[in-house]
Computed example of a mutant assay.
Amino acid sequence: MSSEDKYKLAVKKSELDRVVDSLVKEGLEEIKAGFAGYITIRYKELEKILKNSGVYLAEQSIIDALVKEGIVTVETEGRIVVCPKCKNPSIVVMYTCPSCNSVDIEPTLVMSHVVCGYTGLLVDFKKNDELVCPNCKRRLESEEDYTILGRIFYCHSCKRRFANLSVKFKCIICGEDFGPFDALMKKFYRFKVNLDKVGEYIIRRAKEIVVTEFSKEGFNVAEGGSIRGQSGISHKFDYTATLNEITIGIRFMGFGGKYEAIEAEMAGIYGLSIDLADSEVVIVTPMEISSVETESFGNVHIIVFSSLEDFSRRIRETASLILSKYRKLREADVKEGA
């Protein structure tokens, strides 16, 4: 089995259509990683999209399909440490003393007593709940009595002071202890949505759906083509479909076009319906035109595009409606002839 076949088995076109519909509906431009539980990497926006679209496939399969279509691009957002033994990301990070390897260390302040000039660590000055200079024994009453010079680490086990500490990890799941060079690093990602590619995918799939659904009903569907009207004018279409005496012209209008141009073209549909009175016309447009009636009439079937899933259903209904119309006309002709 080729990798292409595996891809087709993993994600059906109808499933990817529903995912893209949900992407558009949610208006997502980016899908980022989040963390839950024991540092489990989750892509909550993607989970929501899959749930809303009713697609129950592995997230990686969907991402692979979206990447293949160019709908999303993948960027590495970061890396997390995972256990080299069980590959789990549920890790505890522990700072250790570079001298004795103890984990009983803490960051502390380097302080200088203003009066006597003694310099030491905050732990040296602490006495019960007060700050007392270990050199001159005076109490430090306010922040004006001392100066903070910096920060450093202090080991309670060996009393060493150091600026650079060591790190080790412990896996919560299997208990494995390991150091930085033994750790495995797992990437997590940010997925950016390419809105131009989303639009291209929707138009391409909409056209594929037209071909598929009309072909299922027995129509011979051809890309392009024209239908000659009663006026002698040939009207061009994106697709033409024929079956016996039925001829259908299918036109996509307004996908990426300017509003004024769409409005003018929609206004000309009435004349088109008269000139092609012996044919059927299917108009697909992505928006409602407020000043032009967008309901189907006579031999003109207008589909206002909202989503790929809805479009697939409406194309099936339109093909069925046209077939039913001509079936009734034939039955009427038979009765009249009898």
Rank of each mutant, 00 (worst) to 15 (best):
A267C: 00
E4P: 00
T294S: 02
I322F: 01
V20A: 05
G199C: 10
E331C: 01
I289W: 03
I322W: 04
V72C: 04
I31Y: 04
F178Q: 02
D145E: 08
K187P: 07
F255Y: 08
K13H: 05
G337Y: 13
N88W: 04
L16T: 06
E213A: 02
F252E: 06
K127Q: 15
V72W: 10
Y146S: 05
I105E: 10
I62M: 04
K13C: 01
V334L: 13
V198N: 01
S142M: 05
D182P: 01
C171G: 07
G199N: 14
V198E: 03
D177C: 00
R228T: 15
D145M: 02
K68R: 15
G268D: 15
L122D: 08
V198D: 01
I202K: 09
S291G: 00
S2V: 02
I31F: 05
V221I: 03
T212E: 15
I152N: 09
S2T: 12
A163M: 13
N164D: 12
E265V: 00
S166E: 13
I233K: 15
E293K: 14
M111E: 12
A264W: 06
T96P: 01
K51P: 00
L23Y: 04
C83L: 05
E223Y: 12
Y239V: 00
E69W: 04
K137G: 00
I289M: 08
K85Q: 11
G70R: 11
V123K: 14
C158I: 08
S226Q: 11
E176K: 12
G225H: 01
E59R: 12
N194Y: 01
E200G: 08
A183L: 03
P98A: 04
E200W: 08
P89N: 07
L109S: 14
C116E: 10
Y7E: 14
R138S: 13
K126C: 06
V284S: 07
P98I: 03
C97Y: 10
A163E: 15
D104G: 00
S166T: 08
S2K: 10
D5Q: 10
R18L: 04
E217Y: 06
Y259H: 10
E106S: 15
S53K: 02
G70C: 12
